[in-house]
Write a protein that binds this DNA or RNA. Structure first.
Lengths: 166, 166
DNA sequence: CGGCTACGCGAAATAATATTGCGCACGGAA
DNA sequence: TTCCGTGCGCAATATTATTTCGCGTAGCCG
């Protein structure tokens, strides 16, 4: 990572790959306005520098039989770092928990969970999550429908911001 | 879609592509145990049938200068379908809002927002979100840190479930 | 001002991969 | 048994990825 700062071409690459992670390198090169070899080099550099954390196919949960999505707000009894870490590790071990974010405010964590059906989730909720050590309170909300689910960051906002300071 | 049901090979394909969306087709074919051409045919079929909704590079928000992630709980004044749809459309138009889920319970929507800094988010919050038509209440929580962020669904759970009924 | 170095680009060559066309085998229905 | 429909693998071709190489430019010292 020579210059940690990204130039406009790097940002364009990231934006394109965020929108379509399976784009071929030649197509990507065409879109960002350079030839294929330097484009590939940039992509590799961005991957190694950690700007790109991976590539994933987005699968349709409901189509696959995962009918239930739930947000769970969790409060802990102890917020000591050791206990926070323990709870986070437990979340990593639960496959139904897809995301675990520590929050400020009255609630300590928000969890995004996915399950095949309500009974599977209920079992998890009562037998695992609520029953877990140090868990003081759990409030769950079922997702009725999803109006927007965009991955990553809004590059449009980033460009606006850079133009302002430039 | 001849048989809407997926066979074990299809599920393996989905699991592999969810874990690594840029895997080459020959590597994928090797892992699922068939040759490349039928593997590619299956992938195309899965894409067209909507099981695969797209491919995305996962970018590191903070590394890119998006320091702030916020969950916003939104309550509306009217829950009539027309008004719900209007609010959802507004969320789609706001680039800072990456996800918008309608919930059951006391809160109507949960929004996941990303912003370059706190002041950008505050401006959005006060001038756009809170000020929007039909919005009754907004409660926000800053993300302190993220312990887990897995995309998609847990295929391990799916396999367990299928084995149980089989 | 001249020359040195570092960096990034593009062209061409090569290796790997994607994609197409075809023939074969299996399993269900007439 | 015979006839399809479905899905596989093999082989050939088209595309793409990747490496190698030489060129031009910007920054930097002597």
């Amino acid at each position: 990572m020579p210059t940690s700062r990204l130039d406009p071409i790097d940002r364009k690459i990231l934006a394109e790959l965020q929108a379509d992670g399976r784009m071929t390198n030649v197509e990507l090169a065409k879109r960002v306005g350079i030839s294929a070899p330097p484009c590939l080099r940039r992509v590799r550099t961005l991957e190694e520098a950690g700007f790109i954390r991976g590539y994933h196919a987005k699968v349709d949960s409901r189509e696959l039989g995962f009918e239930v999505q739930v947000f769970a707000m969790v409060g802990l009894q102890s917020q000591a770092e050791v206990d926070l870490s323990k709870f986070e590790q437990r979340c990593r071990d639960w496959p139904l928990v897809r995301e675990c974010h520590m929050l400020n405010g009255e609630v300590d964590f928000i969890l995004k969970c996915v399950a095949p059906d309500l009974s599977t989730f209920q079992s998890f909720l009562t037998e695992q999550l609520t029953a877990a050590e140090n868990v003081a309170s759990v409030k769950t909300s079922l997702v009725i429908r999803c109006a927007k689910d965009e991955p990553g960051v809004p590059f449009s906002v980033m460009e606006e911001r850079l133009n302002r300071t430039a």
